[in-house]
Simulated assay, not measured.
Amino acid sequence: MSVYKMICLDIDGTLLNSKHKITQPVKDSIQKVVTEKNIPIILVSARMPKGIIFLQKELGIAFPIISYSGALILDKKQNILHQEILPSTDVQSIYAAAKKLQAHLSIYKEDTWYIEKNDVWSRQESDITGIRPEIQPFAKLLTQWNSQKTGPNKLLCMAAPEIIQTLKNSLAAKSITSYCSKPTYLEIVPSSASKTNAIKYLANIGSIATKEIMTIGDNYNDIDMLESAGLGIAMGNAPDAVKIHAAAITASNDNDGVAAAIGKYCLR
């Protein structure tokens, strides 16, 4: 019998192959571990809920999800269990900096994606996620949220790599966490948000110990959950700088790495 009572999966580069699809072997292994071992599969991603829930439906599972790299946690009925928001002063200054550098800025709150206008970057992201953004003037939106003492869960800046790096360097003193999910994407979430904190939140609800959690990921924002789990597994396609933080390495996302890991550690 498996010693693991929760499996936490990153999505892009992990659950999905390079064509953004779930392969049949991965789907089969997930359905098998859920039905035969009664182990919940928690999808953990920088994506918004809409970008996660349709994948749950494809897998035929219904469990809580962790969105925006831990800034938003929903239960299996899509009710908010917990969320973290970005400070309004930081959002305002990042908005100004992105505008000055002519970087695209997307703002995410709960299950809505906001942009000021459609451009090549928003169209690219729509093509990847299958989600369409809502167009709103950011100044008006931020004023409204400020009066309501609320704010967004995540910001996403998209631009050429050199612009992204300049922007990232300018954020060092702010109370946020920023990381590049790819050279042209800068993800920004509250400093209090992390995949690990969100996983611990759900584990506490289910009375699951850290040693009973298995995590699988491929990118820099997965490092914390790889290090803190009972078993952290890096994908074969992960950078070497991520792999060194994992206890084990599985095959790549184009070679059914998730299925191999689940088969080896949970279905044997």
Rank of each mutant, 00 (worst) to 15 (best):
S126D: 06
S126F: 02
S126H: 06
I128Y: 09
I128N: 05
I128C: 02
T129M: 07
T129W: 03
G130D: 05
G130V: 00
G130N: 07
I131M: 08
I131A: 04
R132F: 11
P133Q: 06
P133L: 02
P133F: 01
E134N: 13
E134C: 14
E134A: 12
E134S: 14
I135L: 12
I135D: 01
I135N: 08
Q136S: 11
Q136K: 15
P137G: 01
P137D: 06
F138R: 00
F138H: 03
F138L: 04
F138V: 05
F138D: 01
F138S: 02
A139G: 01
A139L: 09
A139K: 11
K140L: 10
K140G: 03
K140T: 14
K140W: 04
L141A: 04
L141D: 03
L141W: 03
L141F: 05
L141E: 06
L142N: 00
L142M: 09
L142A: 02
L142Y: 00
L142V: 02
T143F: 03
T143E: 13
Q144E: 13
Q144S: 12
W145T: 04
W145N: 06
N146A: 11
N146Y: 00
N146T: 12
N146Q: 15
S147G: 07
S147I: 08
K149T: 13
K149Y: 14
K149D: 15
K149N: 15
T150G: 10
T150D: 13
T150F: 05
T150H: 09
T150Y: 08
T150A: 04
T150Q: 11
G151T: 06
G151L: 03
P152S: 10
P152G: 07
P152D: 10
K154T: 04
K154N: 08
K154E: 05
K154F: 02
L156I: 12
L156P: 08
L156N: 01
L156G: 05
C157V: 15
C157H: 08
M158N: 09
M158C: 13
M158G: 03
M158I: 13
A159G: 15
A159F: 07
A159V: 09
A159K: 06
A160N: 09
A160K: 15
A160F: 10
P161F: 07
P161S: 08
P161A: 08
E162C: 05
I163R: 02
I163L: 12
I164V: 14
I164N: 00
I164H: 00
I164L: 08
Q165I: 03
Q165R: 11
